[in-house]
Structures are given as structure tokens and as C-alpha cells.
Amino acid sequence: MIDLKGKKAIVTGGGRGLGKAVALSLAAEGVHVAITGRNEATMKGTVEEIKKHGVNACYAVFDVADEKAATAGIQKLAEELGGVDILINNAGIGDFGTLEEMSSEAWKKVIDVNLFGVYYAAQAVYPYMKSKNEGDIVNVASTAGLKGGAGMSAYAASKAAVISLSQSMMAEWRKSNIRVMTLTPSTIATDLTLGTLTDGNPERVLQPEDFAQWVTDMLKMNRRALIANGSIFSTNP
């Protein structure tokens, strides 16, 4: 097992929900963490929680779908941390509706955030990892990317694209000892999904902390090993 203490991580969409849980889990392992998001007040609060683990923490406000802002923001955080060893590509949105109902603008926004956001962040950290000949990139997809469904065409398409992008990224960048991991969780109790639970009971599905533990455990694996693709499901949803 790898000791993660002292490593530097950037978590996109790290101010709340899934991203926050991962950021805190990494901080508990001694990882210095930077988070990104669009709500500065939320990120300030999360950074203070991260610092309670005795690690350095910082944040940057930008939209991952904005190439210039995302590139500059990631670079700024990497410089503040003194490098970057781990990227958690977590930022994402969901907009649901039938193909007939959804506007092309809404459809495109989901693709821009969920797919291009992953691409921009990965491109920004790659030079840092390549120069060290080591790094970890975790791209958060979804089981929706494995099988589309009614009313979720944009979201499912964006996550399917993330899965394919990640596979190409892994094939190219593993030569620089960069592990690219693609994760496809089922429903997790976050703001994005709570409204979709038929009985309104969030305790019956995966929690952000479950996902965060999974991510941390994978990062601690010996570097000769790579979980290229993985899924996690609720036991009895």
C-alpha cells in the first residue's frame, strides 16, 4: 500500500457532495488538497474543514466548461500546492428531460461541463505529472454512461464520452506512469440525485463517504497496479 501523506491533489467540484467527501478523505490521509467550484462561500467552508486534518488547502472559483478559466485555475492551484500528484475529475451537472423536451442549449451545457471539463482539467495537470513521471487521474463517470435511459440522454451521453475519453487517456499517458482510473458509480445521495429517489429515503443508496473511501483505497494501491475501470452499486437500493 502507498502512503499518500504529503501528496498534492486537486478535486474539481470539491466544495460539496461527492467532491467534498473525497477531498476530506484524502486530507485524512495527509494529502494537501485544492478544490474548485463556482460557489466561493461553500468552498471557503470546505477548505476550513480540510485544514483541520493538518494539511494545506486552497481553492479556485471557475467554471470547468470555460477552457481559459479552467486551465488558468488548475495551473494556479498546482503552483499554490507546489505541484500536483492527484486529479479527481468530479465536477459535473445533470439536466434531465426527453429528447423532445430538452433544448439544444441545455444539452450542450451538460456536454460542456461533464466532458470538456474533464478534458480541460486533465490537459492542465498533465505537464506536471509528466515531468515527475508519475501521477493519478480519477475521472468520475456514471453507470448511466454504460446504459442510457429515457429522460437522461444528455447526461448518459456525457458520461459515456467520459468513459471513452478516459480509456484513450490511459492508453496514452500510462507510458509516463500516470494511472488513469474511470469510475462508474450508481446512484449516490447528493443534491443531484435526491429528487430522483422514489421513496425519498437517501439512506438506502450509496453515500458520498462510501465513494470517497473507494477512491482513497484505489489511490493507495501499489503503483504497479491500476484499476482502469470500476463500478460501485448500492447493495439493496
Results as ranks from 00 to 15, higher is better:
residue 7 K to C: 03
residue 7 K to S: 11
residue 7 K to T: 13
residue 8 K to A: 13
residue 9 A to Q: 05
residue 11 V to C: 07
residue 12 T to K: 02
residue 12 T to W: 01
residue 13 G to R: 05
residue 14 G to Y: 09
residue 14 G to I: 07
residue 15 G to R: 02
residue 15 G to K: 02
residue 17 G to H: 04
residue 18 L to E: 07
residue 19 G to L: 02
residue 21 A to G: 13
residue 21 A to E: 11
residue 24 L to R: 10
residue 26 L to V: 12
residue 30 G to R: 02
residue 30 G to L: 10
residue 36 T to K: 09
residue 40 E to T: 04
residue 42 T to N: 06
residue 42 T to S: 15
residue 44 K to S: 11
residue 46 T to W: 03
residue 48 E to N: 10
residue 51 K to Q: 15
residue 52 K to Q: 07
residue 54 G to W: 06
residue 55 V to Y: 04
residue 56 N to C: 07
residue 57 A to D: 12
residue 59 Y to Q: 14
residue 60 A to I: 00
residue 62 F to T: 14
residue 65 A to N: 01
residue 66 D to S: 15
residue 68 K to A: 13
residue 70 A to H: 03
residue 71 T to R: 00
residue 76 K to Q: 15
residue 76 K to T: 12
residue 76 K to A: 15
residue 77 L to M: 14
residue 79 E to P: 08
residue 79 E to H: 07
residue 81 L to Q: 02
residue 82 G to H: 10
residue 82 G to Q: 09
residue 84 V to Q: 06
residue 85 D to I: 09
residue 85 D to Q: 09
residue 86 I to P: 10
residue 89 N to I: 03
residue 91 A to M: 05
residue 93 I to E: 07
residue 94 G to L: 14
residue 95 D to E: 14
residue 97 G to S: 11
residue 101 E to N: 10
residue 102 M to F: 03
residue 103 S to L: 00
residue 104 S to D: 00
residue 105 E to K: 11
residue 106 A to S: 14
residue 106 A to G: 01
residue 107 W to A: 11
residue 107 W to S: 11
residue 108 K to V: 06
residue 109 K to V: 07
residue 109 K to T: 15
residue 110 V to A: 06
residue 115 L to M: 01
residue 117 G to H: 00
residue 118 V to Q: 15
residue 119 Y to S: 09
residue 121 A to M: 04
residue 122 A to D: 05
residue 124 A to K: 02
residue 125 V to D: 14
residue 127 P to R: 15
residue 128 Y to L: 08
residue 129 M to N: 10
residue 129 M to H: 09
residue 130 K to E: 15
residue 131 S to L: 05
residue 131 S to G: 02
residue 131 S to V: 06
residue 132 K to T: 11
residue 133 N to A: 13
residue 134 E to G: 14
residue 134 E to I: 08
residue 135 G to E: 09
residue 135 G to F: 13
residue 136 D to T: 07
residue 136 D to C: 08
residue 137 I to A: 10
residue 141 A to T: 00
residue 143 T to H: 04
residue 147 K to D: 05
residue 148 G to I: 12
residue 149 G to W: 09
residue 151 G to E: 12
residue 151 G to D: 12
residue 152 M to L: 13
residue 153 S to T: 13
residue 153 S to V: 13
residue 154 A to M: 08
residue 155 Y to F: 01
residue 157 A to W: 09
residue 159 K to H: 13
residue 160 A to C: 07
residue 161 A to Q: 06
residue 164 S to T: 14
residue 166 S to F: 06
residue 168 S to W: 04
residue 172 E to K: 01
residue 172 E to D: 15
residue 172 E to T: 08
residue 175 K to T: 11
residue 175 K to R: 11
residue 178 I to Q: 15
residue 179 R to Q: 10
residue 185 P to T: 02
residue 187 T to A: 06
residue 190 T to D: 01
residue 194 L to W: 01
residue 195 G to N: 03
residue 206 L to K: 06
residue 206 L to W: 00
residue 207 Q to F: 08
residue 207 Q to H: 12
residue 209 E to K: 13
residue 210 D to M: 14
residue 211 F to Q: 04
residue 213 Q to V: 03
residue 213 Q to S: 09
residue 214 W to M: 15
residue 215 V to P: 02
residue 216 T to D: 05
residue 220 K to I: 12
residue 222 N to C: 04
residue 224 R to G: 15
residue 225 A to I: 06
residue 227 I to M: 12
residue 228 A to T: 15
residue 228 A to N: 11
residue 232 I to T: 06
residue 233 F to P: 02
residue 236 N to E: 12
residue 236 N to P: 00
residue 236 N to S: 12
residue 237 P to H: 13
